[in-house]
Structures are given as structure tokens and as C-alpha cells.
Simulated scan of single mutants.
Amino acid sequence: MRKLSFVVISLLGFFSATAQVAQTPDLPINRIVVLGDAELELPADQVRVAVSLQYSDPTDAKKAYNAHQAAEKQLVKLLKDFQINEKDIRYTLLQVQKNQNDIYATGERRQEIVTMQQVIFELNKPERYPALQLALINANFPRFQATYRSTKEEQSKNLVLEKAVEAAREKAVLLAKASGRTLGSVLSVRDTEETDPVLQKRYSMDALNEVVRVGYGSNLLDIPQTIRIPAQVKVTFELK
């Protein structure tokens, strides 16, 4: 009976060990993982402007909607005056909702009908942005914000990733040589150790953030602005 129990326990141990081996990733022992960093700076040739439209009426949704429509027509005319191309204009859906506002003097709560919408467009002549700001304010559009952009930003994403992979390869060659080994083929390109070991390209959302760098001068508008495009990859190489 003891012998039978021992056999059963041994078989259970065997199947358990087999399951563990099956779950272990089949990765080569002779490998090296390095980080590759790269960065591009593009000249800003565009300003992205976002204008927020918001109108309200205490009780009448139609009045709030009509005020919103009148503002839309005025904004469209302003954009035509600044020669903004239609393909460079986007907008969110119009939202109409009922809010409750506190009247702090009496503590009374009153309802209010509010319309909200955002219009986003590209100004392809950054030097005209000061005049555009004045025009928006004079036309009673005080809610707007802007960021510098580059028309070459999208096509530069792949280039900066390729440079990051190349930087990783150069670092790996030096490390392999220092350890008396040679570098083999690429096993994976990834951004976390948990990622499956497959060749892939990823572009971090952090790299989409516009960073404007300025220098010194008599007029800030005369200083070229640049957009920073960074990338970082984690590359696994075979070691020979």
C-alpha cells in the first residue's frame, strides 16, 4: 500500500513538473537585452487651435441652440477670412444638456440649458497666430488654446523608431565585444519584458506630446520653434 502511494505521488510530481515546463517561455539562454533611445527635432510649421463653444439659457433650450448656431456661422466666417482649409477643420458633436447651478448668495439651485462643442483647426502660417488670437477675442470666442505642430510629424515616427533600434544594436555590439562574444539576429523588439517575443513596432503616446524649445532674442516670434519626437525600444539580440 505504501509502495502504491509512493507511485501515485511520483506521478503527480512528474505531471506537475511537466506542466511547469510547458508554461515556461522557450527563450534562448544566450541573449542580451538592451534599450535603444532616439530623438528627432522637427521645425514647427503649423499651429493647432482648439476653440470651445458654450452657450446657455436659464430655461429655453431653443434660445441656447440659436445662440450656438449664430456663433458657429461667425466662427466659420472668421476661419474663411484666415484662409483655413476645410480639410484642416474638425469639430465634435454638439451637446445640449441641463445643468444645475448654485446661486451662492441665496443658496438657491437653478437649472440651466447649456450647449457645448469644440472646433479644432490647423493654422499653416504660425506667424499669423497673434492676429488670429485678437480676432477670436474680438468675435467673442475667449475659450481657445493652441499648440505648435509639424506637418512632417507623422512620417517621422517610423524614422525615429528605426534610429532607436539602430542605437540599441550599436550598444549591443559594444557589450558583446566587451564580453568576448558576437551579436546574432534580433529576437524581439518591445517596450516591456512581459511582451511576447515577436518583432513589432510601437510608438509611445508620450512621444506625441508637443515640446516647444525657445532661445533668446529680441522677438520670440522670430525664434524657430521645434517639435521633439522621442522614442525608446527594448531589443533582444541573440549572443553567439
Rank of each mutant, 00 (worst) to 15 (best):
Y216G: 07
K152Y: 05
K125T: 08
L221P: 04
Q100S: 12
E193M: 09
S150G: 02
V49K: 02
K77H: 01
L183H: 03
T182C: 02
E154T: 06
T18E: 11
A172C: 11
P43C: 08
E170F: 10
K80T: 03
L53Y: 03
M1F: 05
L93K: 15
L159Y: 07
L4W: 06
K87W: 04
D191F: 01
N124I: 06
E170I: 14
T182I: 04
A50P: 12
V214M: 06
A167Y: 05
E72G: 00
L187Y: 06
V34S: 00
V165M: 00
L132W: 00
K77D: 11
V33T: 13
K77A: 11
H68R: 02
Q155N: 02
G215K: 14
V233T: 05
F237D: 00
P126R: 12
V160A: 08
Y129T: 10
Q200G: 09
L12T: 01
G184A: 05
A71H: 04
I223P: 11
F14A: 10
H68W: 09
I9F: 13
V214R: 09
D206M: 09
L35N: 15
D37Y: 06
T195S: 15
A164P: 11
L35W: 04
Y203L: 15
L199G: 08
V33C: 03
R190P: 06
P58S: 08
R90Y: 00
L161S: 11
R228P: 11
E210K: 04
G184E: 06
R213W: 10
Q69E: 09
R2F: 12
E153V: 08
L132Q: 06
R213A: 06
I229P: 13
T226K: 14
Q46I: 02
V47H: 00
L208Y: 15
E122R: 07
A176R: 07
K80P: 00
S204A: 10
N30G: 04
Q95P: 03
S5I: 09
A17G: 14
S179R: 14
N209H: 11
E193S: 15
V165D: 00
E39P: 04
I227L: 12
L175E: 07
D26W: 08
V8W: 01
T147Q: 11
V212N: 14
T92V: 07
L27K: 05
L35F: 09
D37R: 13
L132N: 00
L35A: 10
T192A: 15
R90K: 07
V33S: 07
V76H: 00
S150T: 06
G217P: 03
K240C: 05
N101C: 04
A164G: 10
R31N: 14
Q117T: 03
D222G: 08
